[in-house]
Design a protein around this nucleic acid. Structure first.
Lengths: 351, 351
DNA sequence: TGTTAGCACTCTTTGGCTTTGAGTGCTAAC
DNA sequence: GTTAGCACTCAAAGCCAAAGAGTGCTAACA
């Protein structure tokens, strides 16, 4: 697709995008010939630029302005020109150090990752926990607290656990509690939330006749837990970073972006769609999220035991320092990956 | 303090604030005499306005503009003039219905409340979970999963429970696990996180010599859990609502506000400071959070069993529809309160 | 045939200028 | 104490000209 570009065109296109990323303003022929050692005159560059514009890689805000990369141009740049930003040892150390403060739960890791992504890149960081396929509970345990309350522990197949503290209006004995637990383990394991039916509840009530009135609130708690963990979540940090960039100096553009953050579902589905192991870049309207008018999204998914458990990324203007952002996300994501999938040492850390 | 204002001054001040809230622009004498049936001429009103300005209730952006309420003016308005907004049955129903979708955990209730506050008022909703006083764990339980992993359940004095799933690099037996649990219950209950010392860990290791290498990761998990739940949290929703108001049409003012949202700590400490049962209103610089330059904060705390577990509120421009906002927050908060503190029915719902 | 210099042309940006209009403060009359 | 009248102030809007940046085109050149 990009075969038809001569080396010189590529060089010019790359130089324009670099300059535009740096200064945020349209780039003119004179600037290029002077500062980017093009070894040809402005006039020649103008000719090339005119052709690049005809091919769709460049755009002109108005007649007497320089050229600005189009979304196609950025795409080309990201795909082929971008040289990997080589991080300084200091930067690498800083990222690694930040990750050291190893947080235990996936949720927390992601939420922290969003902050890190934001602070290292100066764009807006996002972290996504995808909507999981329907969860089933594989085992129940209960912990007796006192005559009127107990903790219900629900274990999921992936080893996660959730708890609910139940307060009852009437006393319950340890024996009854263990009957209840047995009944739950007998009837309520391995099923999805939509299979919790009235029939099932009646069966349960029959299994523990002495405390049948407890079934309904317990079932409700279970149902809530199952449906809860279905939900995806999107964390966003550093929105105010964006306001430093002229593309968002207009309130309406900010509103666009903020509006998108409220429609987190779209981000969720966008990111959940693709789950390869590399950093992905969506530029402007390329993606279904049409609100991302003048913005780009760089992200990478996070896996654990081969399953996607989340993603981290960065949102910023199309004119983004891609090489730096990509490297940062790359390193953050792989750092998190290795935290979540520790090598088989003598003793693994907890999750 | 406000005794010295004549009835007519109060009326004029109130009319100015109402008009300014409605239109967002400085209010002139002519407008008042025409539209608010003042029964006196513009000139008279001008005299009164000049005095109100001298007293500090009004301000003039520049010589030839109308008057704008000062922060003191708003404060006066909120304290004495505001007539409680009477909600329509429809609005009340809608709030109640939204609250019906009763979410179980405090965290979720608050996060949902923030969305509700935002959508009912069209300002920015915030929900706060305060930094709790240092947490201690009152009891440990463990659930055996398989030879190499188990779930550690930690119970807090208030009945909450947290879990950590531990994956080990070596096998552990049920007996050893219960030894571990006993040791934890013996040595690690009732202490704050800063008292988990090396000495304590050594004692623990001595208590379970056969699996002493497990102590360190377990202790780490416990420490993390304890320090986690210390942390407060602030949820914010509907930031983009604000952009509809001209006060925030300037990017720098938006940045101010967004910056504040990143410094959630300040909001946290502000709200945690006062814990009475009524709706509080902070206007502009009244509060320590000096960033709230041109903004006001309306909130009310949420209690459970007499303890503050959070707060919900709204942030918007000083020029805010206080009567509506106050009623909305009032109703939301009391609705949540009653969800969290159910009447003693036969069977209480879970928490 | 590709490159370059030169030049006319376009179009935004900037600054200064005036006009407009809203709203005030003051004074004098009621 | 209230009101009408009037001069005054000042931001906002509109207008115009000048400046400046950058282009496209043409013609000369290698």
């Amino acid at each position: 697709m990009y075969r038809d570009l001569s080396e010189r065109k590529k060089k010019i296109l790359g130089a324009i995008i670099n300059a535009h990323i740096q200064f945020g303003e349209p780039v003119g022929s004179k600037y290029l010939s002077q500062n980017e050692d093009m070894s040809c005159s402005p006039a020649t560059i103008r000719n090339e630029m005119a052709e690049l514009e005809a091919l769709g890689y460049l755009e002109q805000p108005h007649t007497s302005a320089g050229r600005v990369p189009s979304e196609l141009g950025y795409r080309f740049y990201v795909d082929s020109l971008v040289e990997r930003y080589s991080m300084t040892t200091k930067e690498i150390e800083e990222i690694d150090r930040s990750l050291q403060r190893k947080l235990s739960e996936v949720d927390q890791i992601l939420s922290e990752a969003s902050k890190l992504a934001s602070s290292f890149t100066n764009y807006t960081g996002i972290a996504v926990k995808p909507r999981l396929p329907r969860t089933v509970i594989s085992r129940y345990e209960s912990i007796y607290i006192d005559g009127r309350s107990f903790v219900l522990v629900m274990l999921f197949p992936d080893g996660q656990a959730k708890t609910k503290t139940m307060h009852l209006g009437f006393p319950i004995s340890r024996v009854e509690l263990s009957q209840l637990t047995d009944a739950l383990n007998d009837k309520m394991t391995g099923i999805t939330s939509d299979r919790i039916t009235f029939t099932l509840l009646s069966e349960l009530e029959r299994a523990v006749p002495s405390i049948s009135s407890i079934i309904s609130p317990v079932a409700k708690a279970i149902y809530e837990t199952m449906t809860d963990s279905d939900g995806g979540d999107v964390k966003i940090d550093g929105v105010d970073n964006l306001l430093d960039y002229p593309e968002y100096s207009d309130v309406s553009s900010v509103r666009h972006l903020l509006g998108m953050f409220d429609r987190k579902d779209e981000i969720l589905s966008l990111i959940s769609a693709k789950d390869d192991d590399k950093v992905n870049v969506y530029i402007g309207k390329e993606n279904s999220v049409d609100i991302m008018n003048n913005s780009a999204l760089v992200y990478r998914t996070i896996k654990r035991d081969g399953n996607v458990v989340g993603a981290i990324g960065v949102i910023g203007p199309c004119r983004m320092d891609y090489s730096k952002v990509i490297s940062t996300i790359e390193r953050l994501a792989s750092g998190i990956d290795s935290m979540l999938n520790p090598k088989d040492d003598d003793l693994k850390g907890e999750r």
